[in-house]
Design a protein around this nucleic acid. Sequence first.
DNA 1: AACTACTCCTGGAGGC
DNA 2: TGCCTCCAGGAGTAGT
Length: 285
Amino acid sequence: MPELPEVETLRRKLDREVVGQAIARADLLTPSMFDGPCPVTDLVGATIEGTRRRAKYLIVDLSNGLSLIFHLGLAGQIVLEKPDAQRVVGGHPIPRYSAPLPHKQTHLVLTFGNDDVLFMTDIRKFGHIWLTPTPKVYDIIPDERRGPEIQSAAFTPEEFRRILRARPRAKLKPLLLDQSTVAGLGNIYVDESLWGARLHPLQTPGQLTDEEIDRLHRSIREVIDLAVEKGVAEIVNNRAVEGSHLPRVHGREGLPCPHCGSPIVRFRVVGRSTYVCEQCQGVRE
DNA sequence: AACTACTCCTGGAGGC
DNA sequence: TGCCTCCAGGAGTAGT
């Protein structure tokens, strides 16, 4: 599932390819995946000036004063195909990045002046695409519903403590999945962060010392930095890929904890599969 | 404040 | 091989 690291690594790869390119053609194959307020035809003729990311949203700023926004949902994927058939890929790995395109799950196709073609696909259609005037990007992504960016200077231990202390009785897992706490975490990286901080998903901020909250803050930063710089978590069919450096607990039920060797346990929290090492993180309920 | 339930969607896995 | 059922979950909203 594309979380912050998946979207950010995709953005960086894409940025190198598309900035400065003009959109020669835009084909919306699945109208239900798109909301304006501007029509898709407004893309044609615009040049890409830059890319940004906020939380799990990928923002593409255009020369005509508009911005194209992608949210990849659970299974969104972007493939940029070059004329020599080389592909720059990111997002959900299914269908295989090598699949012929477009296919029936392809929803938007952008053809550039240099004959590169960008395909946005999503087998579950939980993702979405918007085209809006650049000053109105945050009407689509309301800032007051997003917490701080994890890799920004605003994400300090003090700020994180303040946010958590305001929600003393919320369980850590749903709290961290809430985008208004911290922007960009999803099910996988929440499990990884809690494991790294040796905290249990059902603990609450009210039960934590300042030192423990700082430990969680540090762990979130480390996990996200590691994923963005050294490679994102690899999961196929809900299992961690053998030998991958991430995830370390998510999708590893029954396998030894990398820290202590005890078997990783899976249970449900707010309907989400949750993985813990009970030796390192404790047992609740 | 904190929680649950519900909605969107469909490929893939497992049972028989 | 094939039919059926369940599971995966980001984010928004509504209801308790």
